[in-house]
Amino acid sequence: MTTKPLLEARDVTKRFGAVDALRGASFQIFPGEVVALMGDNGAGKSTLIKTICGVYAPDSGEILFEGRPIGGWHPKAVQALGIETVYQDLALAPDLDTPANLFLGRERLKGGLLGALGVLDKSSMRAEASRVLTDLSVKIKDVNAPVNNLSGGQQQSVAVARAVTWADKLVIMDEPTAALGVPQTQAVLALIERVRESGRSVILISHSLPDVMQVADRIEVLRLGRRVAQLVTTETTEEQIVGAMTGAWTQEVAA
């Protein structure tokens, strides 16, 4: 790992009233890497992610993206850097079809007068959507059907595909497989690998050790608002990870 990190959090603190959500948390991810962010409930995973995407501003510490400090930026400015988040609860519009969901909030308009009137360029969006889905090998049974007709796995695939469409650099996934069955989980994990193959980095928040072991290059563990371990998946056992999450084992260099 001699290259510069794509994204780095250094000693980030964040307080909510009397609660210290982050007490000097650090995090690193390199280009083309899948890093699992693990930790028990309340360890600060979600707070750290929300601080990275601009939902919260850090009280102290730094967030560096490609060496540039982005802590406290507006979420839209962070998105514009090529960072997208897939939320746990999907955030799709269930009554809209797949292309409409991929382009939600970023609808493409026709050129000329029609575009000035706000007329959508549906065919171009449909073509782009099918290109993205093909690239990711996602097969949607009927892209013109409302997404609530799709299975949970397919809906999650649409959500991931949307993030990938707009994220040039980094996709953050908050428990993408939490609500899924075994085959759908495998589909999403395969999707994560294809995102990595496309050269983008993925931060994967997950409680599922098997998922993490299967797909992550590295694992960073948070406990009580601090990083307690930086592990390379191939050199790590599940016991070590659980130990780090529960506090039975701490890696001295990590903090």
Binding site: S137, V138, K139, K141, D142, N144, A145, N149, L150, S151, G153, Q154, S157, G181, P183, Q184, Q186, A187, A190, L191
Partner: peptide, 18 residues
């Protein structure tokens, strides 16, 4: 998505095209 084949049940939308 070869692993997603168990989703054969959600073909309800298919007749709409016919």
């Amino acid at each position: 998505m070869t692993t997603d084949t168990l989703d054969a049940t959600d073909t309800v939308a298919a007749p709409a095209r016919r």
